[in-house]
Amino acid sequence: MEKTEQNQRHALFQIQCVVKEYYCRMIIDGGSCNNLTISDISDMVKKFALSTKPHPHLYHIQWLNNTGKAKAKVTRLVRINFAIGSYHDVDECDVVPMQTCHILLGRSWHFDTDCVHLSRSN
Protein backbone atom coordinates (compact mmCIF):
# COMPACT_ATOMS: atom_id res chain seq x y z
CA MET A 1 0.00 0.00 0.00
CA GLU A 2 1.11 3.54 -0.59
CA LYS A 3 1.95 5.56 2.52
CA THR A 4 -1.24 7.68 2.28
CA GLU A 5 -3.43 4.59 2.03
CA GLN A 6 -1.59 3.02 4.97
CA ASN A 7 -2.29 6.12 7.09
CA GLN A 8 -6.01 5.97 6.20
CA ARG A 9 -6.32 2.48 7.74
CA HIS A 10 -6.39 4.12 11.18
CA ALA A 11 -8.45 7.19 10.30
CA LEU A 12 -12.15 7.50 11.04
CA PHE A 13 -14.58 8.12 8.19
CA GLN A 14 -15.73 11.72 8.64
CA ILE A 15 -18.47 13.38 6.64
CA GLN A 16 -20.89 16.29 6.77
CA CYS A 17 -24.60 15.56 7.05
CA VAL A 18 -27.78 17.61 7.35
CA VAL A 19 -30.21 17.40 10.29
CA LYS A 20 -33.25 19.71 10.17
CA GLU A 21 -31.51 21.98 7.64
CA TYR A 22 -28.41 22.32 9.88
CA TYR A 23 -25.01 21.04 8.76
CA CYS A 24 -23.48 18.59 11.24
CA ARG A 25 -20.21 16.69 11.57
CA MET A 26 -20.65 12.93 11.46
CA ILE A 27 -18.18 10.15 12.14
CA ILE A 28 -18.80 6.61 10.94
CA ASP A 29 -16.80 4.30 13.21
CA GLY A 30 -17.12 0.57 12.67
CA GLY A 31 -15.22 0.05 15.93
CA SER A 32 -17.79 1.82 18.08
CA CYS A 33 -20.48 -0.31 19.70
CA ASN A 34 -22.98 2.56 19.94
CA ASN A 35 -24.65 5.25 17.85
CA LEU A 36 -24.22 8.55 19.69
CA THR A 37 -25.26 12.16 19.36
CA ILE A 38 -23.92 15.23 21.07
CA SER A 39 -25.29 16.86 24.18
CA ASP A 40 -22.79 19.46 25.34
CA ILE A 41 -22.36 23.23 25.47
CA SER A 42 -24.00 23.76 22.07
CA ASP A 43 -26.52 21.00 22.89
CA MET A 44 -27.57 19.83 19.46
CA VAL A 45 -30.66 18.08 20.84
CA LYS A 46 -32.10 21.34 22.22
CA LYS A 47 -30.81 23.60 19.43
CA PHE A 48 -32.41 21.43 16.73
CA ALA A 49 -35.58 20.86 18.83
CA LEU A 50 -35.17 17.08 18.75
CA SER A 51 -37.39 15.17 21.15
CA THR A 52 -35.80 12.53 23.34
CA LYS A 53 -37.15 9.59 25.26
CA PRO A 54 -35.85 7.66 28.25
CA HIS A 55 -33.20 5.07 27.41
CA PRO A 56 -34.55 1.55 28.07
CA HIS A 57 -31.15 0.28 29.28
CA LEU A 58 -29.21 2.87 31.30
CA TYR A 59 -25.43 2.55 31.15
CA HIS A 60 -22.21 4.54 31.64
CA ILE A 61 -19.84 5.44 28.83
CA GLN A 62 -16.19 6.47 29.18
CA TRP A 63 -13.67 7.90 26.72
CA LEU A 64 -10.68 10.24 26.56
CA ASN A 65 -11.01 13.94 25.81
CA ASN A 66 -8.87 17.09 26.21
CA THR A 67 -9.26 17.03 29.99
CA GLY A 68 -8.44 13.34 30.45
CA LYS A 69 -11.02 10.64 31.08
CA ALA A 70 -14.69 11.55 30.70
CA LYS A 71 -17.55 9.44 32.02
CA ALA A 72 -21.26 9.98 31.50
CA LYS A 73 -24.46 8.17 32.35
CA VAL A 74 -26.55 7.51 29.24
CA THR A 75 -30.22 8.13 30.11
CA ARG A 76 -31.81 9.47 26.88
CA LEU A 77 -32.37 8.35 23.27
CA VAL A 78 -33.09 10.56 20.27
CA ARG A 79 -34.39 9.62 16.83
CA ILE A 80 -32.50 11.57 14.14
CA ASN A 81 -33.45 12.05 10.50
CA PHE A 82 -30.29 12.89 8.56
CA ALA A 83 -29.11 13.25 4.98
CA ILE A 84 -25.72 12.76 3.35
CA GLY A 85 -26.13 14.15 -0.14
CA SER A 86 -29.06 12.28 -1.67
CA TYR A 87 -28.90 9.50 0.96
CA HIS A 88 -31.54 9.84 3.72
CA ASP A 89 -31.79 7.75 6.87
CA VAL A 90 -33.25 7.68 10.38
CA ASP A 91 -31.46 6.27 13.39
CA GLU A 92 -31.79 6.19 17.16
CA CYS A 93 -28.78 7.55 18.99
CA ASP A 94 -27.83 7.68 22.65
CA VAL A 95 -27.48 11.26 23.92
CA VAL A 96 -24.02 11.84 25.45
CA PRO A 97 -21.68 14.79 26.07
CA MET A 98 -19.00 14.68 23.35
CA GLN A 99 -16.90 17.21 21.49
CA THR A 100 -15.59 15.35 18.44
CA CYS A 101 -18.69 15.47 16.25
CA HIS A 102 -22.48 15.87 16.30
CA ILE A 103 -23.30 12.26 15.40
CA LEU A 104 -21.25 9.09 15.68
CA LEU A 105 -22.61 6.03 13.88
CA GLY A 106 -21.19 2.71 15.02
CA ARG A 107 -21.45 -1.00 14.30
CA SER A 108 -25.18 -1.19 14.97
CA TRP A 109 -25.87 1.31 12.14
CA HIS A 110 -23.44 -0.56 9.87
CA PHE A 111 -25.26 -3.82 10.57
CA ASP A 112 -28.80 -2.43 10.27
CA THR A 113 -28.16 -0.66 6.96
CA ASP A 114 -25.63 -3.15 5.57
CA CYS A 115 -23.80 -0.07 4.34
CA VAL A 116 -20.70 0.25 2.23
CA HIS A 117 -18.93 3.58 2.47
CA LEU A 118 -15.80 2.73 0.42
CA SER A 119 -13.21 4.11 2.84
CA ARG A 120 -10.34 4.10 0.32
CA SER A 121 -12.07 5.98 -2.49
CA ASN A 122 -13.84 8.36 -0.10
Rank of each mutant, 00 (worst) to 15 (best):
K46L: 11
T100E: 14
T4C: 08
T4I: 14
S86T: 10
L58M: 09
A72R: 04
H57P: 00
R25Q: 08
V116R: 12
K53Q: 14
V116K: 10
L12N: 05
I15E: 00
N81Q: 14
F111G: 01
C24E: 07
N7V: 15
K3T: 08
Q6T: 10
K47G: 02
T52M: 09
Q62R: 13
G106Q: 04
S108Q: 10
P97H: 11
R79V: 07
W63L: 05
K69Y: 10
I61S: 07
L64F: 11
L64T: 07
K47V: 07
F13N: 00
C17H: 02
N122K: 10
D114F: 13
A72P: 04
H117A: 01
Q8Y: 05
I84D: 00
S86A: 11
E5N: 12
Y23H: 11
L118V: 01
V45G: 02
S42Y: 13
D29I: 02
I84W: 00
R120G: 00
Q14A: 13
Y23L: 13
H88K: 13
A49N: 12
E5P: 01
S39E: 07
K71W: 02
V19F: 02
M98N: 01
K69N: 13
L36P: 00
F13L: 03
C24H: 02
N7P: 01
S86H: 11
N65F: 04
D91H: 11
W63E: 04
H117Q: 04
S32C: 12
D29E: 04
D89M: 06
L104N: 05
T75Q: 14
D91K: 13
K69L: 13
V78G: 03
L118D: 07
K20H: 07
A70F: 09
C33P: 03
F48H: 07
E2P: 08
V45W: 07
L12A: 06
S121N: 10
D112V: 03
D29M: 06
M98G: 03
D112K: 15
A70N: 08
F82E: 02
I41L: 15
